[in-house]
Amino acid sequence: MEALLASTFTVAIAEIGDKTQLLALILAARFKNKTAIILGIFLSTLVNHFAAAWLGQWAISWISPEMGRYLVAASFFAIALWVLIPDKVDAEESRFYAMGPFLATFILFFIAEMGDKTQIATVVLSAKYDALAMVVMGTTLGMLIANVPVVIAGHFSAEKLPMNWIHRGCAVLFALLGVATLVF
């Protein structure tokens, strides 16, 4: 249960102001079928984060538990710093719009998540908790918690949120996860 809650909370917070959240806003403005967009986000995240969580579990199995603990903690500290750098959405997504809201969302979210903070966090969380299903469910739920309201509201803008404070708070969260990994 700890893996599910930590994964959900961590990704939901990290996703605020992230490029995939901005992408959700763009897709919501572009397409009327909000259900197709939400389903695309869900399935894309599920596939992407399953692969990331599996990679985390596979990678941690090759090293000693002590070394793994240090690598996971270092990864959390690195993500804490990375979160402080704001994301921007690339303008190339327009070529996928002709595929319709579901496929465009699925493909664009999958691509946007590659190497993204939340994907790397999924790898690290999976390595830390050794609970693949709970981490994947949690990170996917965290993505939905952060993105579904943006899709439904459509007109809502992430620019209205105090992004500097959100990024700082998220950085503190990842740093605390790093410290907790070292201490516990």
Results as ranks from 00 to 15, higher is better:
Gly68Lys: 03
Ala104Phe: 04
Tyr129Met: 07
Ala158Ser: 14
Trp165Lys: 15
Lys128Met: 13
Trp58Ile: 13
Lys88Ser: 15
Ile79Pro: 01
Trp62Asp: 13
Val136Ile: 14
Arg30Val: 10
Asn33Ser: 09
Gly178Ser: 12
Asp90Gln: 13
Val124Asn: 05
Asp90Ser: 13
Ala171Ser: 15
Pro149Ile: 14
Lys160Ser: 10
Thr45Val: 08
Ile38Gly: 00
Asp90Trp: 12
Phe42Tyr: 06
Leu23Cys: 08
Gly142Thr: 02
Ala153Arg: 11
Leu132Asn: 05
Pro86Gln: 10
Lys34Thr: 01
Phe42Ser: 06
Ala146Trp: 02
Glu113Leu: 02
Phe9Gly: 03
Asn164Pro: 09
Glu92Pro: 08
Val47Pro: 08
Val124Lys: 01
Phe77Lys: 10
Ile60Gly: 01
Gly138Thr: 04
Val47Gln: 14
Leu132Ile: 09
His49Met: 11
Ser61Thr: 13
Trp82Asn: 03
Glu113Thr: 07
Val135Lys: 05
Thr20Ala: 01
Leu144Cys: 10
Thr105Gly: 00
Trp54Lys: 14
Phe156Asn: 08
Leu25Asp: 05
Ala146Phe: 04
Glu15Ala: 07
Leu182Thr: 10
Asp18Lys: 06
Gly100Cys: 03
Asp87Arg: 07
Cys170Arg: 01
Val83Gly: 06
Gln21Ser: 08
Phe174Met: 10
Gly115Ala: 02
Ile120Leu: 14
Asp116Pro: 07
Gln57Ile: 11
Ser64Pro: 09
Ser75Val: 08
Arg69Ile: 09
Leu161Ser: 15
Gly115Cys: 07
Leu81Tyr: 12
Val150Pro: 01
Leu25Thr: 10
Tyr97Cys: 04
Trp58Tyr: 14
Ala12Cys: 14
Ile79Lys: 03
Glu92Ala: 15
Asp18Ile: 01
Ala14Ser: 12
Gly115Met: 07
Gly56Asp: 06
Ala74Met: 05
Ala28Trp: 00
Met163Ala: 08
Ile120Cys: 05
Lys117Pro: 04
Lys160Tyr: 15
Met1Gln: 12
Leu144Pro: 00
Glu92His: 15
Tyr70Ala: 08
Leu39Thr: 00
Ile60Asn: 01
Pro86Phe: 04
Ala104His: 00
Ala36Tyr: 03
Ala171Pro: 03
Phe106Asn: 02
Glu2Ser: 15
Ser7Ile: 01
Ala180Trp: 05
Val183Gly: 12
Met137Asn: 09
Thr140Val: 09
Ser61Asn: 07
His167Met: 12
Leu182Arg: 07
Phe9Val: 13
Ala28Phe: 04
Asp130Gln: 15
Ile16Arg: 04
Leu141Met: 12
Ala24Leu: 10
Trp54Gln: 13
Gly68Leu: 05
Val172Asp: 14
Leu43Phe: 12
Thr105Ile: 00
Met99Gly: 11
Val11His: 02
Ala104Asp: 07
Val148Phe: 02
Val136Glu: 01
Phe77Ile: 03
Ala98Pro: 08
Val135Asn: 01
Val172Trp: 14
Met143Gly: 05
Asp116Tyr: 04
Trp54Pro: 09
Asn164Arg: 13
Ala91Ser: 12
Asn33Arg: 04
Ala131Arg: 08
Ala3Lys: 00
Leu141Asn: 06
Ile16Asp: 07
Ile166Phe: 11
Asp87Lys: 06
Lys160Asp: 14
